[in-house]
Simulated scan of single mutants.
Amino acid sequence: MTQPMQTTPTPARREVPRWRRRLFRSPLAIAGLVFIGVFVLVAAFAPFISPYSPVEQNLRGTYVPPMRVEFRGPEGQPGLWVREVSRTPLGQIELGQELYPIKFFVRGEPWVWWGGLLRSDLHLFGVDGPIKFYLLGADEQGRDILSRLAHGAWISLSIGLIAVAIGLSVGVPVGLVSGYFAGTFDLVAQRVVEVMLSFPGILLAIVLVATLGTGLTNVMIAVGIAAI
């Protein structure tokens, strides 16, 4: 009499959450996540990514266009090379003849970040030579646009996070209390919110900044109040 074969039970397949399936099936959602991730990384490591200080001026480099990177050196050697670009006293763009190599992970101006937690003089890239490398060009005062964008990302991210935190910390409790107790409190809260909604958000923020005064902290408060 033959014994029946015993089969090993197959483990139950773990079901992927619905939100994860929808997320990875949406190219726009993945592109948005990548964009936000890059934005956060740039903001978190702005001094390392920036080749120069965002406030350093170079009056010989005002309104300099983005520098063109060449892939061959003066003797045909491979690599990344760039020529000096400057502005003459007559306002014309002058292109130098000599090529300078672009180096990665170079030593430069010392920087302090995260309230002194990070201190270094290492930068992602730089030029091995006596010239300024403006990858995205320079503004009207000769300041590097790439460095200003990287540091500006941190300011924009800080304003957004703190303003949303202010809006949530005030708006959510008021909405919960208003919906739970109703009555007079609900009526007053609705009228206050309707008054705030009658103003465009940017106009309300401008009025609040004009009332509170200028400054980054006041801008965060103003945008947060507009988000309530």
Rank of each mutant, 00 (worst) to 15 (best):
I162Y: 04
L216I: 09
I102Q: 03
V40K: 04
I162N: 04
H151Y: 14
F45Y: 14
T217S: 14
I221F: 13
L95W: 10
L122A: 11
A222R: 07
V195N: 03
A189W: 12
P173K: 02
E94W: 05
L122M: 11
A138P: 06
T217C: 03
L161R: 04
L122D: 04
V112R: 08
I131L: 07
Q57D: 15
H151T: 09
L59R: 14
S198W: 00
R107N: 05
A31I: 11
Q190Y: 06
R14A: 13
G76A: 07
A150Y: 00
G79T: 07
G171P: 06
G108V: 01
A138D: 03
I159T: 14
R148C: 02
M1F: 15
G61V: 03
I228W: 07
Q97M: 12
R191W: 11
G215I: 13
Q97E: 15
R21F: 05
R68E: 14
L176P: 10
T184R: 09
E109D: 15
A189M: 12
M67H: 12
G175C: 02
L118S: 08
G116S: 07
I36M: 14
A182L: 05
M196P: 00
M196E: 06
L161C: 12
R107L: 04
P54F: 03
R14L: 12
V209N: 06
N218L: 11
I30H: 06
S198C: 04
S50I: 00
Q6F: 06
G224W: 05
Q6W: 02
G116M: 07
T62A: 10
G79Q: 09
W114V: 10
I202W: 03
L208M: 11
V55Q: 10
V174N: 03
T214E: 12
L90R: 08
F48A: 08
F39E: 04
Q57T: 15
F104C: 00
T88P: 01
V195M: 11
S156I: 13
T10W: 05
I159S: 10
V188W: 10
G37Y: 09
I166Y: 05
P17M: 03
L146M: 13
Q3A: 08
F133C: 02
V42R: 01
S156F: 09
G37K: 08
E94P: 01
W111V: 00
M196A: 14
Q92H: 02
D139N: 14
W113K: 02
G224V: 06
V209C: 10
M67I: 10
P51A: 04
P9Y: 11
E70N: 03
A31P: 04
D186A: 14
E56S: 07
V64N: 07
L157F: 15
L59A: 14
A210N: 14
F24Q: 13
P9R: 11
S158P: 01
F185N: 09
L149C: 02
A44Y: 08
S147F: 01
S86T: 15
H151A: 06
G96Q: 10
P11I: 08
